[in-house]
Amino acid sequence: MTSRLEEMAAAGGSPAGAAAIGPLPVEVHDLTVAYGTQPVLWDVDLTLPEGHLIAVVGPNGAGKSTLLKAIVGLVRPITGWVKVYGEPYERRRSWVGYTPQRESVDWDFPTSALDVVTMGLYGRVGWFRRPSRRHREMALACLEKLGIRDLAGRQISQLSGGQQQRVFLARALAQEARLYLMDEPFAGVDATTEKAVLSLLQDLRREGKTVVAVHHDLQTVAEYFDHVVLLNLRLVAAGPVATTFTPENIHRAYGGRPTGLSQAAEALLSRRPPGGGP
């Protein structure tokens, strides 16, 4: 598959390319996942290179979230396997920071922003032990990085949607991972948060980390990310944005679905200078 070769090449050419010699952050082989009898991912083969910001795009129900869940073992595949840095996920937990969708939790839960961020450190704290003062300080530093340190003691239901998203990302940051998997970090946030999230992603890339984010806004894919995975039940294409995020591939991913099509068309228009039709 050419896309796979391209990725290898991209990994080799990236600043953090040294890792291309070692195992890749994510290898997915023959992955099929179904909920009940309904397949959500069908025979997906995919490798993701180190040191990139990687967008996972596709229409609703294309299996984007499921792909992330399969990587961290939250759903059990029918066939196929996933490796993270060359090992099963269970042996690489501490290398990975997973951030589920903001709507997946109950924000009325009686807890503070700082508490939620501290949860990112629980894996390191281990079973039975309590987080220490040092852990709290680390969590505070992560809130600081997202510009919401002053909200540390706030009950989480009293945060705006954007602030909640930043709390979630501060928690991911606290995990000090090499590979970050984020489910829709840009969904339903205000402009300030969008900027904060973007600059966080860029900082992570500068540090050589890998970020895989489910993304809905096709128009910002090329601006925010440098690598893209197009998904629609099957893998449509994966590779550098410049060569993979093409009109043909977008059409193949969104084709046949009216709403997806119009969104795809918009994205295409925004990528082309006026007058330069296809």
Partner: peptide
């Protein structure tokens, strides 16, 4: 007492809990 933190994270965000090994 022993599983306070585990009960908390599992109740609030089971997906995160599972991904970090609880």
């Amino acid at each position: 007492l022993l599983l306070y933190k585990e009960l908390k994270v599992v109740s609030f965000d089971p997906a995160l809990a599972s991904s970090i090994g609880f």
